[in-house]
């Protein structure tokens, strides 16, 4: 989850729940809408949003890095071999390129991209603690909230740990670079300490939480992290819901009109 980059953009200031609502509304709207044009429009708008959030470069890398290979794969499979293919655009000899399959592939790709893009923006602009605080405030059990936070935190922590252990084993003569076989062999001395130390860490963390009254059920919890719902949040949420409802109505109308 976002490292909470120091750059304070308007996107970062939004309530995490607003961003989650955006993932839901935009993703669902793309899914429901009968063709891929709406999704394409949303992705283009999201590029603008990423620009405002100062994450345009990494955002573009992720979207293209995922979008291009998956598009090629799906266009190839669906375009050439989809059973829906009726209108043939081109004959490649070994297979025929069909319009229906291509459109279907485009729809899948664009839907995936909208989900990926919205999720990526939320991920990069939201401090994990703030998200969990927002969730807790909206009624989620704090223990569940902690579970989410802990799982999000454990990944970078294990990563750092793995780096140190890798260094420690290199210092004992283990080659961690080189051919595939050398790398595989190197993984055995790495995994032992990683797993063992994660287990001891988990136990220690549990005990630390107990000493801080984490399981105390008699009091109402407060959060150190302040989560605010600004006017922008309210308007944006209303806008997103109106957008989703409008898309649903238009989609039904478009299908009915066909």
């Amino acid at each position: 989850m976002g490292s909470g980059e120091p750059v304070k953009s308007p996107i970062e200031k939004l309530n995490p729940l607003t961003k989650m609502l955006a993932i839901f509304c935009l993703g669902l709207a793309t899914l429901i809408y009968p063709n891929s044009w709406l999704g394409l429009g949303i992705v283009i708008v999201l590029f603008g949003v990423a620009g405002i959030a100062h994450i345009l470069t990494s955002f573009a890398k992720t979207i293209f890095g995922f979008g291009i290979p998956i598009s090629l794969m799906l266009f190839f499979i669906q375009g050439l071999y989809s059973p829906k293919n009726k209108t043939i655009i081109a004959d490649l000899g070994f297979a025929k390129l069909g319009e229906e399959g291509l459109l279907y592939a485009a729809k899948i790709v664009i839907t995936l991209l909208v989900f990926l893009a919205t999720f990526y923006i939320m991920n990069q602009t939201t401090y994990a603690g703030k998200m969990v605080a927002a969730l807790t405030r909206s009624g989620i059990n704090p223990q569940v909230g902690y579970l989410i936070l802990a799982s999000l935190n454990v990944v970078p922590q294990m990563h750092r740990r793995l780096d140190i252990i890798k260094e420690a084993q290199e210092a004992r003569g283990v080659e961690t670079t080189g051919g595939l076989w050398a790398r595989l062999k190197a993984y055995v001395p790495l995994m032992g300490p990683v797993v063992m130390s994660s287990l001891t860490d988990a136990q220690e963390r549990g005990m630390t939480l107990e000493t801080r009254g984490f399981a105390n059920t008699n009091v109402k919890r407060t959060s150190y992290i302040e989560v605010t719902t600004s006017k922008a949040d309210t308007y944006l949420r209303a806008g997103l819901i109106i957008f989703l409802v409008a898309v649903i109505i238009i989609s039904i109308w478009m299908r009915w009109a066909q």
Partner: peptide, 18 residues
Amino acid sequence: TAKWAAKVGYVFQNPNDQ
């Protein structure tokens, strides 16, 4: 580093890492 290990030994701070 693995090659240097024969010449330069390095004892890490935390035994659990090694």
